[in-house]
């Protein structure tokens, strides 16, 4: 009973602390200047040099492209971590029990898959001048991959672990290479010339779409796309 009391007290006490933090932050927000353009002016001024008409894409891939490079490395790290933690799924027989494949799901995928691929391509292209880009496109492709895994459609059959690792890292490799390639023209790392910036950005984004899709799908499958296959094999064997 006293222990219960103690946890209740801790909750109330901590709640008060959080309320104080929230109040202080709220006052700080209210005290901020009402109008402040930040770096919007500088971005707009340099936008025609940046190779993308969409200011957000220009910031992501050009002005602050280095952040994006590191952030793809962060995604890759999550896959590395998931791979380090994955255990052999085939040894497991309690989880992922699948009685049968849902025919409605299969039918749905038949309709939705082509649309999703087109949407991903559109998002990638439109990112140049309107909201969109590699991450959005990659997320759409990855969700298509998740649907395929759920429907037990075995499209990764011919994908070896080696090629999977290449797909996971290809965007970092391309990003780094493009960045280094710009240095041959006596420019800085990741300094695109205004004339080629558009194509550099498109190349990086296109490859990033693939890598991001594969990375997100791999995260869904515990770090390895081939894991999905493995657990279907075991569960199907059991159902039959």
């Amino acid at each position: 009973m006293s222990r219960l009391r103690k946890t209740e007290l801790a909750k109330v006490g901590f709640g008060l602390i959080v309320a104080m933090i929230v109040t202080a932050l709220g006052c700080a927000i209210l005290a901020l200047p009402g109008e402040e353009s930040g770096l919007a002016g500088a971005v707009m001024l340099n936008l025609d040099q940046a190779g993308a008409k969409n200011p957000v894409t220009a910031v992501l891939l050009n002005f602050r492209g280095y952040d994006t490079l590191l952030e793809i490395a962060v995604l890759l790290l999550a896959v590395l971590g998931a791979r380090a933690l994955a255990v052999d799924e085939s040894a497991d027989d309690s989880e992922h029990f699948r009685s049968s494949i849902n025919p409605v799901l299969i039918g749905f995928i038949r309709v939705i898959a082509p649309v999703m691929i087109i949407v991903a391509g559109y998002l990638l292209w439109v990112g140049g001048h309107a909201p969109g880009g590699a991450f959005q496109a990659g997320a759409v492709l990855a969700s298509l991959g998740v649907l395929l895994v759920l429907a037990d459609i075995n499209w990764t059959q011919h994908l070896s672990d080696y090629s999977e690792r290449i797909l996971l890292t290809i965007s970092l490799v391309v990003f780094l290479s493009v960045g280094l390639a710009t240095m041959f023209n006596a420019r800085n790392f990741l300094e695109f010339s205004p004339s080629t910036a558009k194509w550099c950005i498109l190349l990086i984004e296109a490859v990033a779409t693939v890598s991001i899709a594969v990375i997100l799908l791999a995260l869904f499958c515990c770090g390895k796309i081939s894991n999905a296959r493995k657990y279907h094999e075991t569960t199907r064997g059991r159902v039959e």
């Binding site: 770096l39 500088a42 971005v43 050009n62 002005f63 602050r64 280095y66 800085n188």
Partner: peptide, 13 residues
């Protein structure tokens, strides 16, 4: 200092 992307602070990194 080294300007990544050649933009320089505050726009670049």
């Amino acid at each position: 200092r080294y300007k990544i992307g050649g933009w320089g602070a505050p726009l670049g990194i």
